[in-house]
Design a binder for these strands. Structure first.
Lengths: 210, 210, 210, 210
DNA sequence: CATGAATGAGGGTTCATTCAT
DNA sequence: GATGAATGAACCCTCATTCAT
């Protein structure tokens, strides 16, 4: 695990260890939150789950707020990373939308716990100063990608004339609704669910007379 | 619900006072939650917001769990009550769906804070014993109404052949996504938003070549 | 329950009602304490048990301290009243001691709940200002009666030469130990227990060679 | 109990610190309870008495229940430890009983506050779930030792024929009554008190014509 | 770097008491 | 006289955070 030939010694190594520790703690936090809810996710429990002492968490993260933020970002990044190939392979807006839906649902299917943790944090965690870690509607950046997609598709005639914002947030809503249900109903066939969504939004975005 | 001819005063009035207090506290709780998030919604802050002492909340509600539950139920009931006339006036499944979307968005538009509070509670509040107040996917009863609607519409040929469950939860997701955005972006025209949704799901559910 | 011919009306009647209310509340308090312990004996529960409102208790008693005191005194008085005939019938110190033991145990056997309540209060209730309602060792007045008895018995040669104080408190200890056990072990034959105690203290107090 | 040869330092030392803190807090709890009663023994007061913050108590003890339990156990263990040599040195049941009484009273004389605290807890503390920490009559195990002693003494003719249970609980009652009085009346000569008890129970248990 | 003992604020809850009705 | 809504203090406990070791 420890690369042998590296530019230079101590500093890099520490940074590597540090990264590993952070990853380890983030994973433990996600696991605890997914299993027992944000309400049970004290630093003590997260530390115990990670097999480290409480102080380590405080040492590697500025505070609980930062840890929670990092959990969310890690899942988001992993999701974006997992979805990227499929999306980039798409050549038309319509294919793009289908790829977005399929890869997103696939990621949820593959990481239900991670998603559960994110949902818990985003909707249930209150940072120190009040307010929210990610202000609701702050997934706008995420929706923005879809808005852009819909705009392009409308320009080239792939999609009918609708409000891209409404469509984008409806897609997000459709996806966000999946993870909680998937956790409670593991028997749901998410691949089929994805195809249903593809058909649903294909119909919803298709021009009147294609 | 309120009997018209009653012997008299005292008993009714006391009951009325109690009801008023509960309503007042429920309102204060909803306001605090909507503004600052469920995490800031301590009984102390709710009491202060209601202009009463902390003990009053415990006096009128068995505990925080009950208060949170009542906030949700109050909003749900009010919503169902507000939507009922429009929905009952619909004669076809397609009209029914449109009425559902319009009246639901209208209710959100009229009570954005209440809806916001409900979302915070349902997805972010951890009751005493752990778990969730309304287990996720426990809005299934709500989605059930839609499932039923879609089934009927498919039988009489109003809707194309799709998975009613997926469609129902997508509709719910589309609606649930609105309140948080409406709070943050008061400039959004929710009437137009509703029409967009009507068109969206009209297209999504329409038979191939009606 | 309400005597018809009384010296005078309203004032006496109120006093009578008042007395009844106090007795009723004292009984309810004793029952609650005996059943669920002093820790569960809130004024609210006592009031509910008595079938009256919380305010009534505060109205008839200066505070919880007074109520607790009255419960204890009521039981003590009833006990003294129940024991008096048997004790007064005794003609010698030795008979007196036996009568004391028998009648005391008999009273405990007949009123285990009352005794249980008293024990709970005396040893477990903390009055407002701190300290205790009946300072421990404050049953000295009760023991005094025994001390007096032993002194007389020693003077007339009925008893051997021992420290009357030690003997008196040992008798008290022997008796106080009974009620808790009687509550937990209802199968104990308290009449036989009393005879054992009579024999025990008869031997313990008897002169070397009577 | 304490292993003599151990690898080293750190682990033991930390364990030692923890033990010291627990002992310190237990002592503070006993002191507060002995002085002001169980009803005044809030964690806040105990912490203040120990010179630590409130949280420390919760840190070292799972809850108030555990702290109270530990106070009792500590005193019991110390008492058993203090009494053991004298009792084991006894060769006959009669000597055994005398040693039991003398060493027990001696322990009370040396630790009146500790005993007082134990009595307060055992008879006056209500654990969280209701009920009692040590169910009344749960000192039966303690009395059992005496019952066994009396049985043996009756078999070998040392003691007359009496109910060993009644005698055992009477001894316990005789002893339990001492601590509260000793606290309030420090002038009492407990060594003489012990001799009185020895004589008392010697007479009470002696065969008719020894 | 890591530890875990210690802190102290704040959480929800209970409850004796008061007082307008 | 009686009610019960309201109070406010005190309770135990949790927990993010700090810091000497």
């Amino acid at each position: 695990m420890r690369p042998e030939n590296e530019p230079e010694g101590q500093d890099r190594e520490l940074s590597f260890i540090e990264k590993a520790r952070r990853t380890q703690i983030i994973g433990a936090a996600a696991a605890v939150i997914a299993e027992d809810g944000i309400g049970q996710a004290s630093l003590a429990r997260i530390a115990k789950r990670a097999g480290v002492s409480k102080g380590v968490v405080s040492y590697h993260f500025a505070g609980k707020d930062e840890l929670m933020t990092q959990v969310v970002l890690a899942v988001y990044e992993a999701g974006a990373h997992a979805m990227a190939p499929a999306i980039q392979a798409a050549t038309t807006p319509r294919e793009h939308l289908a790829a977005y839906l399929r890869s997103n649902v696939a990621y949820i299917a593959a990481n239900p716990e991670a998603l559960r943790a994110v949902i818990e944090i985003v909707s249930g965690y209150s940072p120190e100063g009040g307010g929210r870690l990610f202000e609701p509607g702050a997934d706008e950046p995420i929706a923005d990608h879809l808005v852009e997609l819909f705009r392009r598709g409308q320009e080239d005639g792939s999609f009918r004339d609708f409000d891209p914002l409404v469509m984008a947030h409806t897609v997000r809503g459709a996806i966000d609704v999946i993870a909680p249900r998937a956790v409670r109903h593991p028997e749901i066939d998410l691949a089929a669910y994805a195809e249903e969504l593809v058909a649903l939004f294909d119909a919803a975005t298709r021009g009147e007379s294609p």
